[in-house]
Structure formats: C-alpha cells, structure tokens
Computed example of a mutant assay.
Amino acid sequence: MEEELRRAAFGDSPGLDVWRALSATSPRARWLAAVVLGGQGHYAAAATALDALRHDPDPVIASLSFSTRASHLRQLGLHRLARPLDGAALARAPQTGPEDPDGIDAEGARTDALLGLAADSLGAQRLGEARRLLARVETRSWRGEVRKGWVTAEIELASNQPERAVAPAERAHATATSRKALRHELKSALVLGTSLVVWGTPDGLNRGVELVECELNHSASERLKPLIWPSALVLAGHAPTVGAAAIDRATEALSCVLRRADAVSRQVALESPWVPSGLLRSGEPPNADPQTNFLTD
C-alpha cells in the first residue's frame, strides 16, 4: 500500500483514489493519504486525519502532520492560522533519524516546518523574516529542494523582483520533472509560468502563458482543484483569448475547494485577502492577486 500511496503523493498518480487508506493501521500510510487528499482539495477529510496524527508517537509523522495541515490552511489563504501549526511542527521535528528518499524523515520534517514558517511570514508581508527563515533551510531531499524553490520564487515575486524568481522556479521545475513527481511538476510549472509572465519579457511572457495553460489543463485532468483556480486567474490576466473561459474554470474550482473544507476554514477563507472570493459573487472582481497566491505544498 505504501508504494502506491507514495506514487500518489510524490509520483505520477496524484489523482489516485486513496480514501480507503485513511483507515490503514500505518500512521505513515494515513499521512500519505492526507497529503494526496489535500492535493485534490479534500481539505476537511485531510484535516481529520492530520489532526489525529499530530499526537502520533513517531515525532516525524507528528511534525509532518502539523506542517501539512498548515500547508492546506495556506492554500485557503489562512496564513495566520497556519503559523502556530508550523511552529509546532518545528518544535516536534527530531534532530536525527533514518533518511527517507521523499523526505519523510527528521530533515524533511524540519525543512517542511521552516519553509512553512517562511511562507506564513510572506503571507503576512514580513519579507525580511521570510528570507531569514528560508536561509535556515538545509535539505538533501528532492522534495525539500522543490519546495524551497517555490518559496524562494514567491519571496522574490512579493519583493517585486520577478527576474530573480525565475531561476529558483526553473530549478524546482527541473527537479520535479526529473523525479516524475507530477503534482510537484505541475505546481512548479505554475510558479515558473507566473514568474515569467510577471517579469514580462516578450519571450518569457509567451513561454509563461504556455506553461500555465498546459499546467491548468493537466491539473484539471488529474482533478487537482487547488492548482486550477490560481492558474486560471493568471491566464485571465495575461492571455485575453482564454480570459472568460479561465474565469469560469477558476470559479468552479474555487467553489469546489471551499465546499470540501471544514466550516470554520471555509468562513475564514471567504474573508481572507488571499482568496479571490469575488469570483463567487457575480459581477464582483476578485479581491486577491493570483500572481502571489500559490503558497501550497
């Protein structure tokens, strides 16, 4: 079972049906299932599993459960709620232990917690703090390198330096692609494509739009709802020929994601400046900028 779950969480099958794994005896299997469900936008179901795993006697699983739950909250624009969970993840992360190829180990837990805290600081517009946290990240796993590339690019975009966002986004995309980690590859394409269109050079703009449009179609085919609405909004802003259709896709995906969240998260998300809740009210413009809102795992 674990091999199949790893393929879904970190490999070529992110759309896999993993619901039965939520009742597995292995805590690691349940955590992997929660990662997959979060990637598909089933936040309430993932939260139930992760909240129980916070108390697991294995400190790696406990730490990763805190940081994964925080990541899902950030996807809903709830950075202030994510921060204490990332802090708890860092506190629980052990200093040493056996290594794991996908970073399900002590170093991976610490990396996820620090990157989560950096993303939380970015969401609060504390860019200096985000950079200091990012500088503390030391990782050997491919997953940690990919996520570090995302957060690095996001910090540069938030600092109005899109030209400096492209290189870390390129590295993240190359690493995820080489690992055949489809969800991470698609997220990396979104980060890279957005970096290129915000930079705005003629060649970069064309490549960026192409990357995001391809990523959007692939994310939709894999039912990765959390990647669909920010991708669609980037296209709506930079590819007028697909604007109306993109807005419709963004609205459908965001509505679906919010329906799958727990009631408290859903309500707070609707009030978050990071979530374009205007999409859900006919005639109102989005209240968030999709170019800096893809702080996901």
Rank of each mutant, 00 (worst) to 15 (best):
R223N: 03
A220M: 11
V197R: 08
T194G: 09
T251D: 09
T241S: 14
I228M: 06
G200M: 07
S219V: 05
H238C: 06
S178K: 11
G237W: 04
W229C: 01
R207K: 15
R183S: 07
L205V: 08
I247F: 01
V257N: 01
L227V: 03
G204Q: 10
W229I: 00
E215V: 06
L216I: 10
L216Y: 06
D248S: 12
P226S: 04
E252P: 00
D203F: 07
A220P: 00
V242R: 07
G193A: 10
L258N: 03
N217H: 08
N206T: 15
A239G: 05
V209N: 12
L227H: 01
L216W: 02
E210Y: 06
S195Y: 06
P230L: 05
W229V: 03
V197S: 08
S219N: 07
A232T: 08
G200L: 11
S255L: 07
E213H: 13
R207D: 13
D248K: 10
A220V: 10
T251G: 04
A250D: 06
H184I: 02
I228K: 00
V191S: 02
V198W: 02
A220E: 15
T251Q: 11
L205H: 15
S221C: 07
T251R: 15
L186C: 04
A245N: 09
G204S: 12
A236L: 05
L186T: 01
I247L: 12
K187T: 08
L205T: 15
K225L: 00
V234I: 13
A239V: 06
R249Q: 13
E222N: 09
A245M: 10
L254P: 00
S255A: 15
S255E: 15
E252K: 07
S188N: 04
T251W: 03
S188D: 02
E210T: 15
K225F: 00
A246I: 08
G208C: 08
H184K: 01
A239Q: 11
S231D: 03
G243R: 15
L235M: 12
R260H: 11
A232W: 05
N206Y: 07
G200W: 09
A239F: 11
P230S: 04
A232P: 01
L211S: 13
V234M: 06
A244S: 14
V191D: 01
A236C: 06
L235C: 12
G208D: 07
A189R: 12
S219D: 04
L211G: 08
S195C: 07
L258W: 02
S221F: 01
A244E: 14
G204C: 08
L235I: 11
A181R: 00
G237T: 11
K225W: 01
N206E: 14
T194L: 09
P240H: 10
G208M: 10
G204V: 06
T251V: 09
H238M: 05
L233I: 12
E252W: 03
E215N: 09
A246W: 04
S255V: 07
V191Y: 03
H218M: 13
H184F: 13
V257I: 14
T251I: 11
A261V: 09
L190V: 13
L233N: 02
R259E: 13
E185Q: 15
L190E: 01
